[in-house]
Simulated scan of single mutants.
Amino acid sequence: MAALRRPTHRKRSVTERTVLAGEAAADAAHSAVAADGSAPVTGPARRRGLPFLDREKGGRAELPPAAAGDPQAAAFFDCDNTLLQGAAIFYLGLGLYKRQYFTHRDVARFVWQQAWFRLHGAEDPGHMAEAQDTALGIVAGKRVDDLEVICEEVFEDVMAGKIWPGTRALVQMHLDAGQRTWLVTAAPQEAARIIARRLGMTGALGTVAEAVDGVYTGRLVGEPLHGPAKAAAVRALARREGLELERCAAYSDSSNDIPMLSLVGHPYVINPDTALRRHARAEGWRVRDFRTGRKAAKVGIPAAAGLGAAAGGTAAAMALYRKRR
């Protein structure tokens, strides 16, 4: 991550911090893709359309040819419990502990928070705030390059084996349709970029920590990329990337992400918490739960408009995943 100028640390309103966090995440994500020389679209377009399963009609259908490689369409994926089993920041915390960045007491708190998250399938704001404060205190004075190396190692050691195959297959379906895919997470931008890169995604939006001359100051730019800040980041990235949000899809497990899901034309719910499942049922959003063998909750299926259909085809996605293994 490029070094950021030290901002004037006056007291900001919640709205200002939310916007600042979103703009910083979008700037970092857009700049990273430009620096990597990535093509705007990362998957091969299929002019004949992408097959999917139409649950209402019980048969197969195809995306219209115009949907393939739509330059104004993209898919946004939450990370924790949507794409990854558990929370990325807790895995990163354990990785830092193994490298003697902090104490036994700190790791015990990380383990408890992770266990709570896995048991309840939802984020606890208090736990997230504690994790944030601990992480910022740990990295203050450390080099950005060093954290990036650790993030790479933690992904290889832990996270790679905890990706939900079903959600991974949905990412691949978007890529195969020639659509951009973005990870959106409260985890640090450095970790988010590595997860996205290893999954072949276009890029990532994550929490941006302030750094001066390549060294962390122990402060955030704005606030963690959580709740409304995610929606602000997606909106800001859409402006930079020339995306039409009505053509885009978003995926999440948490009711905290309702602002992001409501922002796009095609919201999808993966492994939902109770509040999000209830909201999805009321709104007619598609739901899929990869945590058990039970079928997805039957909710109304919105018009695909080219992009939603690709995302909604869980059965086809799983078939594609098995084929690629």
Rank of each mutant, 00 (worst) to 15 (best):
E152L: 13
S31K: 14
Q100K: 15
M159D: 04
G95D: 01
F110S: 05
E148T: 12
A66P: 01
G137K: 14
A160N: 06
G69Q: 05
D106R: 13
G121H: 15
R46Y: 00
E152M: 08
A140S: 10
Q72N: 12
A45L: 04
D70M: 06
I150D: 01
T103N: 03
G93Q: 15
A28P: 04
I138H: 05
P51K: 03
V107K: 11
D70V: 02
G59W: 13
A135Q: 11
Q85N: 14
A32N: 06
A26S: 08
A73I: 05
F90M: 14
E152A: 11
D106V: 05
T42Q: 12
L136S: 03
P40S: 07
R118T: 03
D70Q: 05
D106C: 12
A39S: 11
F90W: 12
L84C: 12
V41Y: 04
E56N: 08
V149M: 12
R105Y: 07
I150W: 03
H30Q: 07
D54F: 00
V41I: 06
A129I: 02
I138L: 11
P71L: 06
A28C: 07
W116T: 09
R60P: 00
G161F: 09
K57S: 11
Y97L: 13
A29H: 01
W112M: 08
E153F: 00
F77T: 07
A34S: 13
A131D: 02
F77V: 03
A160T: 09
D133S: 10
S38C: 08
T134Y: 07
E152D: 12
L136T: 08
D133A: 08
I138V: 15
A45W: 04
V33P: 01
A122M: 15
Y101L: 14
Q72Y: 03
G161E: 11
L53A: 03
V154D: 02
E130R: 14
T134G: 09
Q72R: 15
A88P: 04
N81T: 01
D80L: 03
G86C: 08
A87D: 13
P65L: 02
D78H: 11
D54L: 04
A34W: 01
F117V: 00
V41E: 03
D146Y: 08
A108P: 06
E148Q: 14
H30D: 05
A108T: 10
A140K: 15
C151L: 08
A26N: 06
V41P: 00
A88E: 01
G126Q: 11
E123R: 13
A26L: 09
H104L: 14
Q113F: 09
D106F: 10
